[in-house]
């Protein structure tokens, strides 16, 4: 028993994040979880829009005023990017689930495509939104 415990103490331990040199795939993994958690809270915004519309013109005006204020626009912009990034990141995970693209360089290409895709789609959506 003592032997086992001593052996357990000698085992190599899993290093924490700061030990590794940051890589794009690692950052994208963290970003996937972070955007997921942000979208969790962002669901409140979407529900607020629906509830305000259901409640009537006064509640809807309050909601619209917030969304068009500077903090509201910043939150909406972040929400747009988070939604697109998490969606494309999810597609990346679904591709991995089929057993494809785990190896270098494909995992690197996928990570870059996800980031490029989410940023450019966010830009396109906001340009469309600005023009309408």
């Amino acid at each position: 028993m003592t032997d086992n415990r001593e052996r357990a103490m000698d085992r190599p331990r899993s290093p924490d994040l700061q030990v590794y040199r940051p890589t794009l795939t690692m950052t994208m993994s963290i970003a996937h979880r972070t955007t997921g958690a942000a979208l969790y809270l962002g669901m409140v915004l979407f529900v607020w829009w629906l509830v305000a519309a259901a409640a009537g013109p006064a509640a809807y005006a309050v909601e619209q005023r917030f969304m068009r204020s500077l903090p509201g626009l910043i939150i909406l912009f972040g929400f747009t990017w988070a939604a697109l990034h998490h969606t494309l990141g999810g597609v990346r995970h679904l591709i991995w689930d089929t057993g494809l693209a785990h190896d270098y360089p494909w995992r690197e290409y996928l990570a870059r495509a996800t980031l490029f895709g989410s940023l450019s789609l966010t830009g396109i959506l906001w340009i469309i939104g600005y023009l309408t």
């Binding site: 529900v47 629906l50 509830v51």
Partner: peptide
């Protein structure tokens, strides 16, 4: 969140 959003949609 789910019930509030759903109820709002049904009401509208």
């Amino acid at each position: 969140a789910g019930v509030a959003g759903a109820l709002a949609l049904v009401k509208i």
